[in-house]
């Protein structure tokens, strides 16, 4: 089943969001317009707007209140992708050239800053102070996560806790906040907002663990980059942490550094894939998924809850 089929009843509202996203990059400057459209049309699942809209259904749903939150979050996500591609020196995203590859790093910085500012212009249409406290705190945390990720590269003395804290900031937080803000904007009760935040948080953690797993288990064609790229770049993910529990394998892994080549790392990737690390990581991802289901149990029945449940399940089973 396709992801979209779980929320087909949102089609009309998602179209509104899509149109708003496109009009948000209609600027006088042709380059920003072109880069903005290039970015938005590169696809993406628009999963954050979906979470905003679904969470909004637990309160007094009104698309006019949902729209600024959904659009702003997607623009923030797009801005962070543009800047991330500069950080990673990436040339392709979703099979299309990145802004830094098509133009250059400086243009990517300016386009990202423009989109981020546009997002803030849009979300400040809502004058609910809590929305802004939550979002601004999350944005600061997101950057702190990125700083940690760079600082922790090739640091093999990391704990499971450090890993979870990092992926919380890197991925889970923006999903959690999408759910929380959707609920807040619709005036849902505080307890509901909290449950939705936690749902998003657990789904986000599960999603990132799967993402980290796929770096080992997928093919180069599916990933759009060589298998094991994360480890080659020094990112210590959960499968690596589990693999290092085997002393022999640990000795090989800790030798990886920024001079290691893709060819040299291949046998290590093979051994990690063969080890129990993949299954152990899968179990942890599953545990977070179960936690997300548990949060949904306390919410009112209906199509929004069913959709959130199905999306989480889909994320847990995705193969690439």
């Amino acid at each position: 089943m396709k992801l979209k089929s779980f929320y087909s009843f949102l089609t009309k509202d998602l179209e509104v969001i899509e149109n708003e996203l496109l009009s948000s990059v209609q600027t006088k400057d042709p380059l920003i317009r072109e880069a903005g459209i290039h970015l938005l049309q590169a696809g993406g699942k628009r999963i954050r707007p979906v979470f905003v809209l679904l969470s909004g259904m637990f309160g007094d749903y009104n698309i006019d209140r949902m729209k600024p939150v959904a659009v702003a979050l997607e623009l923030i996500h797009s801005a962070s992708l543009v800047h991330d591609d500069v950080i990673d020196n990436a040339e392709l995203r979703r099979g299309k050239p990145t802004v830094n590859a098509k133009w250059d790093n400086r243009i990517a910085m300016y386009v990202g800053d423009y989109l981020f500012a546009r997002a803030l212009e849009i979300i400040t249409e809502l004058d609910e102070p809590l929305i802004h406290r939550v979002l601004s705190k999350a944005l600061v945390e997101l950057c702190l996560g990125e700083i940690e990720q760079i600082n922790d590269k090739y640091n093999f003395d990391q704990s499971y806790r450090t890993y979870v804290k990092r992926i919380k900031r890197k991925t889970a937080l923006l999903i959690a906040v999408s759910c929380q803000l959707g609920a807040l904007a619709s005036g849902a009760p505080e307890s509901v907002c909290k449950k939705l935040y936690l749902y998003g948080y657990y789904v986000g953690i599960s999603y990132q663990i799967i993402d980290d797993l796929l770096d080992f288990t997928s093919t180069e064609e599916e990933l759009g980059k060589p298998v094991g790229s994360d480890l080659l770049q020094g990112n210590i993910t959960l499968p690596v942490l589990f693999a290092m529990q085997n002393e022999e394998l640990r000795k090989k892994i800790v030798k990886i550094n920024n001079q290691t080549t893709a060819e040299e790392i291949k046998p290590i990737i093979y051994e990690i894939k063969k080890s129990r690390a993949i299954e152990q990581s899968m179990n942890i991802s599953d545990r977070y998924l179960q936690k997300s289901f548990h949060q949904l149990e306390g919410l009112k029945h209906g199509k929004a809850r069913t959709s959130l449940y199905n999306i989480a399940k889909y994320i847990g089973k995705r193969k690439f």
């Binding site: 950080i87 790093n105 800053d113 981020f116 406290r133 600061v140 997101l142 950057c143 760079i150």
Partner: peptide
């Protein structure tokens, strides 16, 4: 270079955070 990207984003996030705290949207 990587940290210059993040530092700029971090300072931007902080401006929004400080103004959200004093509620001047």
């Amino acid at each position: 270079r990587q940290l210059n990207v993040i530092a700029g984003d971090y300072f931007s996030g902080l401006y929004y955070f400080i103004l959200s705290e004093i509620q001047d949207l």
